[in-house]
């Protein structure tokens, strides 16, 4: 079983990202769960969301404490919360930042998701861009399935734009 933790700020779409990733995994023929940290949601406050992916039915229903991957949607969170808390040995972090390199003590991929999102979507909402980056870096699921799940969630032109943002990030981290 693979467990993924998203760190974002309320309103950035971390919960939506966790659900899109679950659905993408499902399109890949896998079992999945996607859920928010069961807390009080406040716009701007640090939030978490989780995705579980497995080849067999997922029974565990507690929260995720030892993720395999961490996705950080907002670079300012690096100073506010310990994003690698509980991260498994050999785990990896994907961070939205303009910095090329970060030392978080784990394998870390960086991407300027805000730049990509502003360029393609016109707004700094990076959840779909970061999903593209995650899939590019890990190849855990196929990009086609991610694209399909994004288009399910955002209809019409908005869906196409989000898929495009994901694709750009996917391509960048695929080359690494």
């Amino acid at each position: 079983m693979i467990e993924i933790r998203f760190h974002g700020r309320g309103g950035q779409g971390a919960v939506t990202a966790a659900k899109i990733l679950a659905k993408a995994a499902f399109y890949d023929g896998k079992y999945c769960q996607g859920f928010p940290f069961f807390g009080v949601e406040r716009r701007g406050a640090p939030v978490m969301a989780f995705t579980r992916i497995d080849d067999k039915r997922i029974l565990i229903r507690s929260q995720v404490y030892n993720p395999d991957y961490v996705i950080v949607l907002d670079p300012t969170l690096l100073d506010a919360v310990n994003v690698v808390k509980g991260l498994k040995e050999g785990g990896a972090v994907i961070v939205n930042t303009t910095k090329e390199e970060l030392d978080l003590g784990f394998k870390t991929y960086t991407i300027d998701a805000t730049g990509i999102a502003l360029d393609i979507l016109g707004v700094p909402i990076v959840n779909t861009t970061m999903l593209g980056a995650f899939v590019g870096a890990t190849k855990l699921i196929s990009f086609d399935s991610l694209r399909r799940a994004i288009l399910d969630t955002f209809k019409g032109k908005l869906g196409e734009k989000n898929a495009k943002a994901a694709e750009v990030a996917y391509s960048i981290l695929s080359e690494n």
Binding site: A22, Q33, G34, F35
Partner: peptide
């Protein structure tokens, strides 16, 4: 645990 969790 169920109300806010997506699964197939």
């Amino acid at each position: 645990i169920l109300t806010h969790t997506v699964e197939p």
